[in-house]
Write a protein that binds this DNA or RNA. Sequence first.
DNA 1: CGGCGATTTGAATTACATCAATCTAGGTGG
DNA 2: CCACCTAGATTGATGTAATTCAAATCGCCG
Lengths: 212, 212
Amino acid sequence: MTDRHPALDELRQWRVTIPKGRMVYDESDTPKAFYRVESGCVSLLVHSEDGHRQILAFCLPGDTFGLDLAGARATAAEATTASVLTRFPLAVLTDGGLNARTMTGLVAAATDMNVSLSMHLRGLGHVLAEDRLMWFLDWLADRQSVSRHGGLVQPPMSRRDIADFLGLAQETLSRTFARLEVQGLLRVSDIRRLILRPRRPTNSDNPFRQAA
Amino acid sequence: MTDRHPALDELRQWRVTIPKGRMVYDESDTPKAFYRVESGCVSLLVHSEDGHRQILAFCLPGDTFGLDLAGARATAAEATTASVLTRFPLAVLTDGGLNARTMTGLVAAATDMNVSLSMHLRGLGHVLAEDRLMWFLDWLADRQSVSRHGGLVQPPMSRRDIADFLGLAQETLSRTFARLEVQGLLRVSDIRRLILRPRRPTNSDNPFRQAA
DNA sequence: CGGCGATTTGAATTACATCAATCTAGGTGG
DNA sequence: CCACCTAGATTGATGTAATTCAAATCGCCG
């Protein structure tokens, strides 16, 4: 899981440790490297001129991000929690001398991000805040492989981050959490420890996310 | 513009013509090829079990789509207007024998889609329907290079498609068009011919979208 | 223990979705 | 060529869910 694209290991690389809140890169920076999350959580986000904050993706262990070929970053990347990353200089792409397997790994890393962004767009398709939040929690549960571990989910990010990810006001998110708890879909053991009620067995083992 | 990644031309390929409304591929299909739009418009979309339709991306001439490495398509692709596509079999990725330039082109095509999806997520960050619609129209104007051509924009897609792209009800979209026209931001010459009021010159020539 | 940011709660407002009906345009066939 | 038909688009009325502003509470860190 943490090494979804082992072909990348052949690239020049090194570990970097990012403290919570630190930016990995900023919007409009010139891309110099891409990264793989080893531990922690990094969010890709943009700031509108009107102060609005929108998180495009949460990158969890195993995810690759920052593989941008344009002249400037379209998003910023910020450590949501203290994180350890593997840094791959982008220069390898122009240097040449890469074997086919590695190049395929790069394409795979890029398309993985596509899948992630597509899922997000799909999640925002939900009109009701409750549906959006449940969708998010299901996603997180899948990523943390807690489908059958008693439903304990531990969001590594703040409520504000979740709100900015789901396109909701913080207050709305807070109220939605409360409403889901009343409905018995969820129990907030701690602000970062949630217990999901087991989902109905229908397509619990979805064939499409198996090899993801 | 239509040949943003000329390296791909070295791949095995052929032209296909898709009539309006025809699916290029469906959700959960096994990916066999990826495509470049030569003319027309293709939308990438998903259908929720509750009947909700969400368009993730409009692919216009020059855009590449369908470069999926997973075992199944995450989205469907449907011709919004009659379209001509170039079809590239995905087998080339496993066959090997690709030169570095072509592989880089593939990575570039994949990251282009990332940019497109990111822009969309950013657009959905707008809370007000008016802002979302203006963002969409600005995007379309950019893609049609009409910044300085008198502001004529010709959306190739229906109102329903725009609504499903922006996550709005069709009725809301219709009312929002009307409201923008009242405010003088827009004139609806014809349902598929809009005239945008020139934007304030502030960052009209944004350095970041120069080389797209 | 104190303080500041994060989160929650409350009240009022507003924008959007929904349901329903009307209107328009494009296409077909007589 | 025109009447008809249907899908797409608009308009209206109404309910509701989310935003906003404001204040209280919680919780972490020093």
